[in-house]
Write a protein that binds this DNA or RNA. Structure first.
Lengths: 136, 136
DNA sequence: TATTGTTATACTCTATAACTATA
DNA sequence: TATAGTTATAGAGTATAACAATA
């Protein structure tokens, strides 16, 4: 039999993950990009909007709309950087931290459920392989 | 350490695969959807445009533009189905078959190169896991 | 002059609903 | 009436270039 098509399989898996994440995010009133941005903030790998754009993969001009909405809901705050007033430092509010933490927990549970179809060894190998490939 | 985020890892892997496929497809003058459509035809899981839309995941109205271009280049042909003249049967021409086969070969080589970063056991487990997850 | 955040504009992609021709 | 293919239109998403404030 043919070797499976890596690109096709990966795309199908991603589509399934998104399909299962969507209801979780909808309950929280978040779009996918909102969640990615909040997760980047939670991971702590962002200070200014420029950093956040790089860390999240969101274009800096499109990041703005997401931040406007998130700030309007009190989930993040933007404050000028005293050291360089061109920068704006973005940070999670307590409410934002609570929301993204809750979403992440639900998503982890969903992922665990999805991966439970695999033997434990394959599951570990999958995670190892993904981490390795992405770190190239 | 935290368990890796499956959605994020999968998205990153897909982005890397697309990044590596793009130059191959550009050389062939194909867009990603063209390749997906031609691959579906090569796999033989499509007869009418409706079937092809379902098999490739392309919306039936957007499939049309791709088929127009592919037909214009002589890579596929559309002929009315004698049994039900509402249908159009899509098939690869000899040139189309040659082109998609060549692309697929190049993409397989690229995938093999990408996967060569993994130990053989993890590589096999990755492919097994992806197939299993997608088949749910 | 260069950079951060922002806005404006044009372009592409997508979703939806019609329309035709067949059945 | 229903379906396959097609076309048209409106909306969302995207890329690009400009702009204001600051360095």
């Amino acid at each position: 039999m043919d070797r499976p098509d890596l690109g096709k399989l990966t795309a199908q898996l991603l589509r399934e993950i998104i399909r299962r994440e969507t209801p979780i995010l909808e309950r929280a009133g978040l779009e996918m990009w909102d969640y990615v941005i909040l997760s980047s903030l939670l991971a702590g790998d962002a200070a200014t909007q420029r950093d956040l754009a790089a860390a999240s993969g969101r274009d800096k001009t499109r990041l703005i709309g997401n931040l406007d909405a998130l700030e309007g809901r009190g989930l993040v705050s933007r404050s000028p950087d005293p050291a360089d007033r061109r920068n704006k430092v973005v940070s999670l509010t307590a409410a934002g931290r609570r929301l993204v933490t809750a979403c992440r927990s639900d998503i982890r549970a969903m992922e665990g459920d999805l991966l439970s179809a695999l033997p434990a060894a394959d599951r570990a190998a999958l995670e190892r392989a993904l981490v390795r490939l992405v770190d190239l």
